[in-house]
């Protein structure tokens, strides 16, 4: 039996034999950092055995996820457009767009023409998704939880399956509208798979999405990346 190296181990969590979207960041850490991650995790689990405090485990995972994504990435800009808001939020009409991969049951966007693609299949085809023009799915804001589906090859969707509001907060926005804190929450809300071609997003998809939101007379947009 061949001995597995730390390098092979850490890569296996990123679309490999141990694929795990919560821990795919391990591949971007040094071997020493990965060793330290597991050693500290086990030590903290030992503490938790005695006091039951899971917060240290959550913080540990969060801090190492941050290490995995440290650095500015491919896109750097020095300036930004800025829209000065004229209305207060209780007079504004808000929309939601999240890059979460949600869709209404029976309206599967069928990426690559595949019927009922599973979460595992989406993870296996992540490099194909990264070449694809993103498709905006429309989700009425009164969609019952059991009618809303989520699939995305880039993150762990288990939290979103338990409660869509962890990254697609339509219930909380409906409540804020009902309480009069925002003027209106526009229906439908929108989702897309954020793991997509940035060129196709900017050159082809976004002009249509902008036109759509202007036609809906949206003043403010809540955006949620995952």
């Amino acid at each position: 039996m061949t001995e597995e190296t730390i390098s092979q181990l850490k890569k296996s969590f990123s679309y490999g034999s141990r694929s795990d979207m919560n821990f795919k960041f391990l591949k971007d850490l040094t071997d020493e950092e990965v060793t330290k991650f597991f050693q500290e995790l086990l030590w903290k689990l030992g503490d938790t055995l005695d006091d039951g405090n899971l917060q240290r485990i959550i913080s540990h995972i969060y801090q190492y996820q941050q290490k995995g994504y440290v650095g500015t990435g491919r896109f750097k800009y020095e300036t930004t457009a800025f829209t000065q808001v004229e209305l207060q939020k209780d007079k504004m009409r808000f929309a939601l767009i999240a890059s979460t991969g949600h869709f209404v049951q029976g309206q599967d966007p069928k990426p690559f023409g595949v019927e009922d693609m599973t979460q595992n299949q989406a993870e296996e085809r992540i490099t194909d998704f990264l070449r694809l023009e993103p498709e905006l799915t429309s989700i009425p804001t009164n969609t019952p939880p059991d009618q809303l589906k989520v699939r995305h090859g880039g993150y762990d969707v288990r939290g979103a399956i338990m409660d869509r509001n962890v990254n697609f907060p339509i219930d909380r926005l409906n409540e804020l509208a009902a309480d009069g804190i925002i003027g209106e929450f526009s229906s439908p809300a929108y989702s897309f798979v954020g793991a997509c071609s940035q060129m196709r997003l900017q050159n082809h998809a976004l002009p249509r999405w902008i036109e759509k939101l202007h036609n809906e007379e949206i003043h403010g947009l809540i955006l949620v990346p995952v």
Partner: peptide
């Protein structure tokens, strides 16, 4: 990141 590009273009 996709949402960053959406934010910039919408704004």
């Amino acid at each position: 990141m996709s949402v960053g590009h959406v934010a910039r273009a919408m704004e």
